[in-house]
């Protein structure tokens, strides 16, 4: 598999990544045997990154859910440890519909505020480096010169900041307002939520 083009990365950033917490929440209620949730998420991104074109995808959120489902099904078939019934049951699972609502629009406008709050939670050095890199637009090289650090150290801080922020946004460490507007699949009983999962409003 080749590298991801900048254009595809931006598409994934805008159309897919914001829905990752919803996908994880959905998957975690139906834990597939033999696969970890993170595996499914990674395989899903691999498929989305490898698509020839994405212009035809009108509802990226639904598309991501369907891709994740196909990853699980393919794995279940291969694993041969599940019964046909289990497979059929999974196959009939409905993926949530994709209708952005006015609340979603409101959530998007609050994204910047969430980013502002999350950046503040970074450890001091990665935070300083992140601010210089992303907000002030300095290159890693310029940051190294300004902070009198080795370039490899700056690179490590960039990686650290990216890892922490991705975990918080992608894993839904904060509940996105976005989740409030989803028509959730009807096959779920609210009592099945994972312990600690915040009640949706």
């Amino acid at each position: 598999m080749g590298s991801v083009t900048r254009q595809r990365a931006v598409w994934l950033a805008e159309r897919i990544f914001p829905h990752e917490p919803a996908l994880r929440a959905w998957l975690s209620r139906r834990p597939p045997v033999g696969l970890e949730l993170d595996d499914i998420v990674q395989e899903t991104y691999a498929i989305l990154a490898g698509l020839e074109a994405v212009d035809h995808i009108r509802t990226p959120r639904t598309y991501m859910f369907e891709v994740a489902k196909s990853v699980i099904l393919q794995n279940l078939r291969r694993s041969q440890v599940v019964t046909f019934e289990a497979l059929a049951e999974f196959d009939s699972l409905q993926t949530p519909s994709d209708e952005p609502s006015p609340e979603t629009a409101a959530a998007n406008r609050q994204e910047l505020g969430r980013v502002a709050a999350l950046v503040a939670t970074l450890p001091p050095r990665p935070r300083e480096v992140f601010i210089l890199r992303k907000i002030h637009g300095l290159s890693q090289k310029e940051i190294a010169a300004r902070l009198n650090l080795a370039e490899s150290t700056v690179e490590k801080h960039v990686g650290k900041a990216l890892a922490v922020l991705t975990a918080k946004i992608g894993r839904g460490g904060i509940r996105r307002l976005e989740s409030s507007s989803h028509r959730e699949p009807t096959d779920q009983d609210p009592s099945e939520r994972r312990p600690g999962e915040r009640r949706r409003y």
């Binding site: 990365a9 950033a13 990674q42 991104y45 498929i47 994204e111 980013v115 950046v119 907000i135 990216l162």
Partner: peptide, 27 residues
């Protein structure tokens, strides 16, 4: 293939965080 996916995800998150630019130098 999970590695390719994880890398694509990391680049996507990085592109997503480009919006931090809009916080402005006064952040």
């Amino acid at each position: 293939s999970r590695r390719a996916g994880a890398y694509a995800r990391a680049l996507a998150a990085d592109a997503y965080l480009d919006r931090a630019r809009a916080l402005g130098p006064g952040y």
